[in-house]
Computed example of a mutant assay.
Amino acid sequence: MPTQPPVRIGARGSKLSLAQAGHMQRRIAAALGADPDVPDEVERVAPLVVITTTGDRVQDRRLLEIGGKGMFTKEIEEALIAGRIDCAIHSLKDMPAILPDGLCIAAIPEREDPRDAFLSHKAERLEDLAQGAVLGTASLRRQAQALHRRPDLDVRMLRGNVDTRLAKLQAGEADAILLAFAGLKRLGLAHLSQSLIDPVECPPAPGQGALAIETRSQDRDAAWVQAIAHGPTTVAVAAERGALAALEGSCKTAIGAHAWFEGARLKLIVEALSTNGRERFRHAGEADMTELADPQVSARDLGLSLGLAIRDEAGDAILA
């Protein structure tokens, strides 16, 4: 059995957050030398600490109205800084571009499918919805991308965890909703998706589908941290978050970014839209990652360059 102190894992209390955290809890426990198939061992070396965030408590307003993406991480990061937990498991797409002093994204495991999923009881695809149909989403990006393709749609604010949104769809509060396919897969609900959105035509949120292991900066090189990191995913999301940083991305801007490898070449598409979807700004680029001293830095630089190009072109058109 491992002899080092337990690694306490902070996570939100939603069903999806607990599913994600439970998966990483077993990975962390294994990296610490415990048997991931023995629950008592797992809980002893990597106990879960559930923390309710402001984003979980406030469900009747958009995130931009209550402080942005940080409302899903604020209380957890406070516990991390105070030493009540040793790491936190987040959906990377919920992470702000800038983290509090003393904290870092220490590891990113292999990414799940990054695409958005289209769910509806009335149509197979967004294009098939009736004229003026109601689309439910709390994401400005999804709103803007949907309106760019279908300006006739009635897009309404729909927040809540996955179960809540599915219940609202079932109750007829919307004709269709959009959710991260990765979350549906992690909950065993992939079959509910009618279709998947092309990530090049409509790039997902930067980092979508990936998990972030956040620690105090001094813990980033711990052996258990490095054991769960996935190199290609880390490089790809570095490019996406570079674009996010350049565009000062928050819940007040409709930003999408998708990076993927074709052989040794990293390809990246970035877009930003006006909230009504009428204006869309897109830039694409690629870089050879072969034999680079630090491919993560090069990937981030690619994202920064594309994001800055969009910012210079779009100006205030993309601000909510």
Rank of each mutant, 00 (worst) to 15 (best):
C87H: 05
M24E: 10
H23E: 13
R84P: 09
I89R: 05
E41M: 08
P47G: 05
Q59V: 13
L32D: 08
L32E: 11
A82V: 03
I76M: 07
A88Q: 03
M95W: 01
L92G: 01
H90P: 10
D94T: 08
L80D: 00
I51Q: 08
M95Y: 00
L32Y: 01
K74R: 14
A46W: 02
R61F: 05
G83E: 01
C87P: 09
R84T: 09
K69M: 11
T53C: 06
D56C: 06
I81C: 07
T73Y: 03
D40S: 15
L64I: 14
E41F: 06
T52F: 05
T53L: 03
Q59M: 11
E43V: 09
R26V: 06
E43S: 12
K69V: 05
T73K: 04
P47R: 02
A31I: 02
H23F: 11
A79K: 15
D94K: 02
R57L: 12
V58M: 06
P39G: 03
S91D: 15
V45N: 04
L64K: 15
G67N: 06
D56G: 07
L48V: 02
M71V: 15
G68R: 00
M71Y: 10
I51S: 08
A82K: 15
K74E: 15
R84M: 06
I76N: 08
S91M: 09
L32M: 13
D86C: 00
A34Y: 07
